[in-house]
Design a protein around this nucleic acid. Structure first.
Length: 443
DNA sequence: TCTGGGGTCCTAGGACCC
DNA sequence: TCTGGGGTCCTAGGACCC
């Protein structure tokens, strides 16, 4: 048995904890550079603002309907998420943190009335953090997801589902007929694992609801679509195919990419951007104690604009597997110089670390002499330890005083002016919180 | 003028080897 | 010179998730 705990309109709800006057107001949170809406309050959804809608297309609603737009503050959302997750963990013995606002809870061995238990956890999260959430319960992860969708939709759109399922919905404790009734009310595209493409193809095939999908023959689904969709069908039928991942596996690739606040043309600006992206990616790499074998670097113009388009990426093999910002940045910049062409207005760039391996594997290979081609300053064990300590110190300083406190002066550049970064002042200033600053117990 | 930033899994096809 | 079957690895592309 599984539960899914999912924060409502998560980023907006986080902001509202600190600005209670935004309750009952249409609010959106905007992506980097205030580009598009990545979270919407219920009131904003009621204005038919779509996920990912560009700000310039919905801006007029601030005049006509009092829409409030906020710049995203991911540090804050991360802190709030940690609090919500730690309370949600009380629902059952195992927890998988699936995204910043969602976690699956394994309920095996939990006795008693699950829905009642879930309601208690839900009100505790609301009271202790100020964050509203929905909880769905089902025999499989896919059914728990579906139950969560019903719980949230029943609350947001009265009349869509029976009111008793609002906020908490337990699909496991109701009759087969009732469960089929609820699945029949649910669009096929709302099922976890059915995206836009599959939804369109399935509708063409005559399947329109979650109930229709649950009644399909898994073998037919497999041969006509894929093993992935077959698994979804089995999960809807109540056979658990996807288990809780208690311990998060290491990432297989780590990326840092950004759209620019304004078009970038100069090679030097791209070099600054790439070197900062590489630093961020390397921090993540060290945090999971991995080394990279290759770094991929890409630059591209905006596909939305009617201009000469250019988009290229290049993959550079590192001199040895490592997590050293200096070495990896050198390779990334080298890659950039190979693909850069002047005369284009660049809109986006990024860095991906790929072909990752555990750091201790590298150490083993160094010890038994399997790795050659060392960089000059990298030849002795002592110098490697020094480099590694330098990285640890940088990470510690940046964690303590905020990212970008300590940066590499990349590729012979002078000061970092981040001319590629911001279009203008953000709509709302950034502020950070510490655990203890978060207000507690709002009713 | 203005359009996010991450990830994963699966499959098909080609190269190469025995 | 001709022929068969099977395995592995790599890459690109498509689908999905938040």
């Amino acid at each position: 048995m599984f539960a899914l705990v999912d924060g409502n309109n998560f980023y907006v709800s986080c902001e509202r904890v600190f600005r209670p006057n935004l309750q009952h107001t249409p609010v959106v949170v905007l992506s980097n550079n205030d580009g598009c809406a990545i979270a919407r309050s219920n009131e904003a959804k009621a204005l038919d603002i779509k996920m990912g809608a560009p700000w310039f297309q919905i801006q007029h609603l601030s005049e006509s309907h009092g829409l409030v737009a906020l710049s995203a503050n991911f540090a804050l959302y991360g802190d709030m998420s940690d609090r919500m997750m730690s309370i949600a963990a009380g629902l059952g013995p195992t927890q998988e943190i699936y995204s910043i606002d969602e976690s699956f809870i394994g309920l095996d061995g939990v006795r008693g009335n699950l829905a009642r238990r879930a309601r208690i956890i839900r009100s505790r999260i609301l009271q202790w953090t100020g964050l509203p959430c929905g909880i769905g319960i089902g025999a499989t992860k896919t059914l728990a997801k579906l139950a969560n969708y019903i719980a949230k939709t029943a609350e947001r759109k009265p009349g869509s589902y029976p009111q008793e399922y609002a906020q908490v919905c337990d699909l496991s404790s109701i009759s087969l007929e009732e469960r089929q009734y609820l699945l029949g009310l649910t669009e096929i595209g709302e099922v976890w694992g059915v995206g836009r493409r599959y939804a369109a193809q399935l509708k063409e095939y005559g399947m329109h609801t979650a109930l229709d999908l649950s009644r399909m023959d898994p073998a037919v689904v497999r041969s006509r679509w894929s093993v992935v969709l077959e698994r979804t069908v089995r999960e809807l039928q109540g056979t658990a195919c996807i288990q809780i991942e208690d311990i998060a596996p290491d990432k297989k690739e780590i990326a840092c990419t950004r759209s620019f606040g304004h078009p970038v043309t100069q090679r030097s600006d791209l070099q600054e951007a790439i070197s900062e992206f590489t630093s961020r990616a390397c921090e993540k790499l060290r945090r999971q104690n991995s080394h990279a074998n290759q770094v991929l670097c890409f630059i591209r113009t905006s596909p939305f604009r009617k201009e000469k388009q250019y988009s290229r990426s290049i993959c550079i093999r590192l001199p040895r597997p490592c997590a050293d910002t200096k070495i990896i940045t050198q390779s990334a910049i080298q890659g950039l110089n190979l693909i850069y062409k002047s005369g284009y207005k660049y809109a986006k760039a990024g860095v991906m670390l790929i072909d990752l391996q555990p750091a201790d594997t590298t150490q083993l290979n160094l010890d038994i002499g399997l790795t050659d081609d060392l960089c000059a300053e990298d030849r002795t064990p002592e110098s490697r330890v020094d480099q590694s300590r330098l990285m640890q110190t940088m990470d510690a300083v940046n964690l303590r005083y905020g990212k970008s406190t300590l940066l590499l002066a990349s590729a012979g550049l002078g000061g970092v002016n981040r001319s590629w970064s911001m279009k203008q002042e953000r709509r709302t200033p950034q502020y950070t919180t510490r655990w203890q600053d978060i207000p507690i117990a709002r009713a």
